[in-house]
Design a protein around this nucleic acid. Structure first.
Length: 526
RNA sequence: GGUGCUAUCGUCUAGUGGCCUAGGACAACGGCCUCUCACGCCGUAAACCCCGGUUCGAGUCCGGGUAGCACUACCA
């Protein structure tokens, strides 16, 4: 019988969600949707010392922004996403979905392992362990060494209960049987075999904070939550055999999830895992949303705030380590769900190709309507024009028009400002390079004459203006390039921008003439 | 150090023994378009890590090497 597909994304609330984590979440989501299964979100907060306030909200908001929907577990309340304070809701019958709220559950299973002899209690302090490691090179807490340590295997039952009664801090360790080849079937890599000798007696539970470690919690939760496939980063591959052993110790091997270990996202230059530092160093975000870390006071830039469209981020991320069945590169979420397949995921790590990310954003930007882009551009526009209230001195449709003329030359919404600023503010200075190349000796004369031609224009549409200016230039034998470029400099302040009649159209007659006059006064004769 | 994973243009990748004279995309470069800058379009350059083996035939399978990465915590 086919088992219902249930996958989980299980981040740790230790800071902003890394872009690699976003990709893991995406692949899980695509897999779940394709198979008509469930996408769960569980918070793995078993390390009380690394908890960062706001991280949980951040993760859920980021996924919501990207359109990665959660079916079960913790998620952002839909109606609340736009509000300042994000509301979290918990859905599903396998909760709670925060590991810190599942303590009693773990107690039961720790006890089960203890009773069945698969685990034991250890009293070695961190200091003692540290000393051991310093003393013995490559020290490992395992079958060879456990009998020389302070644990329930080496101490009498009385001694153990005495220490326990005294409230001595302890941990529960998994008792790994030596010299056994453990097979892990990975959906991406095939059969991986590791000998249990290299595994250590992993800490499963620590009494200090009454919490399990990742290894125990994730097995118990995945089992209880009926997870069918574990799709996670490659950094987990070395501990996968341990997880298999745990499923076996619990007697859950027949319902053990299938594993798929994803290749890592690598830094664009050099080698190694992509890190927060790389983003700072190379100037691109490695997080979906801007994050203000309340714990260390740092601020990390995000894709959203940098002007990225969620669909572009999704498409970009999807193709970093996965390839569709054809040469297609532009994928909607729906198409990704259709075409996704774990056996088309690459095995090798992928260097983070930020340039391609820009290209994707450019593509998706062109697909958005001018009105939509105008709305998104408003914050930048207000900031640049130093407008504090909602009184925009321009018509919104004018903003949309201007964007329509320039959007094909930008990758990001905020870049629109560099392309459109002269529509909103008359030039106060003139680009030197442009002047040198395009403002000739005769230019003042040309502009003065052009002024008169334009004054007398019977109408102000592109067709009319073109119809009178071009013949005039031809009759005077001035040269189209000479006149038009000088004219352009008057209006724009530089030799750039859209078609000149598109500019005059937006500016209007009065403003156009005014700008030419101003330029005539301000630009020194060459 | 140990264990594991991985290895095709600068980058992301296609390739599952003959369709490979190794395909696509980003970036680069050149041209076209044009009143400018862009966009766009067209084109150019650019790769099978090395050595063996299997086979009539290997980028593709096998072995060895090399390199990179990951893991090696009372972190996830």
């Amino acid at each position: 019988m086919e088992r219902r597909v249930r996958v989980r994304f299980a981040p740790s609330p230790t800071g902003a969600l890394h872009i690699g984590g976003v990709r893991t979440a995406l692949y899980n989501y695509l897999f779940a949707r394709q198979h008509g299964g469930d996408m769960l979100l569980r918070i793995e907060d078993t390390d009380s010392t690394r908890f960062v306030p706001g991280a949980e909200e951040y993760i859920l908001e980021a996924l919501a922004w990207l359109g990665i929907e959660i079916d079960e577990g913790l998620r952002a309340k839909k109606s609340q996403i736009k509000n300042d304070k994000l509301q979290i809701e918990s859905v599903g019958s396998h909760g709670p979905y925060r590991q810190s709220e599942r303590r009693e559950i773990y107690h039961t299973y720790v006890k089960q392992l203890l009773d069945s002899g698969h685990a034991y209690i250890a009293f070695d302090t961190p200091e003692e362990l540290e000393a051991k490691r310093a003393e013995i090179p490559n020290f490992q807490y395992d079958a060879r060494t456990r009998m020389s340590m302070r644990n329930s295997l080496t101490m009498s039952a009385e001694e153990v209960s005495e220490l326990l009664a005294k409230g001595e801090k302890y941990v529960v360790r998994f008792k790994v049987e030596p010299n056994e080849d453990v097979h892990v079937h990975d959906l991406i890599r095939g059969e991986v075999v590791i000998n249990s000798n290299i595994l250590d007696d992993k800490v499963l539970y620590k009494s200090a904070d009454d919490l399990p470690t990742y290894h125990l919690a994730n097995i118990v939760d995945d089992h209880l939550m009926e997870v069918s496939h574990v799709i996670r980063g490659e950094e987990w591959l070395p501990s996968a055999p341990l997880h298999v052993l745990l499923y076996r110790a619990f007697g859950w091997e027949d319902t053990m999830p299938q594993f798929a270990h994803l290749p890592l996202l690598l830094k664009p230059d050099g080698n190694g895992k992509l890190s927060k530092r790389d983003g700072d160093r190379l100037g691109f975000p490695v997080f979906p949303l801007e994050f203000h870390n309340q714990k260390d006071g740092t601020v990390s830039s995000g894709y959203r705030e940098s002007g990225y469209l969620p669909e572009a981020v999704i498409n970009f991320l999807a193709l970093l380590g996965w390839h569709g069945s054809g040469d297609k590169e532009m994928y909607t979420m729906e198409e990704l769900i259709q075409d996704f397949s774990l056996d088309r995921v690459s095995k090798a790590g992928a260097k983070f190709d930020y340039e391609k990310g820009k290209w994707f954003n450019h593509q998706y930007l062109q697909l958005r309507s001018n009105e939509e882009l105008a709305e998104m551009f408003l914050p930048t526009l207000k900031e640049k024009l130093a407008i504090t209230n909602d009184q925009l001195p321009f018509d919104k449709s004018m903003v949309a028009t201007v964007i329509g003329l320039t959007k094909d030359r930008v990758n990001f919404v905020p870049e629109l400002w560099e392309q459109t600023n002269f529509f909103f503010v008359a030039p106060t200075e003139y680009d030197e390079k442009s002047l040198k190349k395009r403002w000739k000796e005769d230019s003042p004369k040309h502009m003065t004459e052009l002024l008169e031609v334009l004054e007398n224009a019977p109408a102000w549409d592109a067709e009319t203006l073109d119809g009178i200016v071009m013949p005039w230039i031809e009759a005077k034998e001035y040269g189209v390039g000479i006149v038009m470029n000088a004219f352009r400099i008057c209006l724009v302040g530089a030799a750039r921008g859209p078609h000149i009649w598109a500019i005059t159209d937006v500016l209007g007659k009065e403003e156009t003439l005014k700008r030419v006059k101003t330029a005539l006064e301000k630009i020194p004769n060459p």
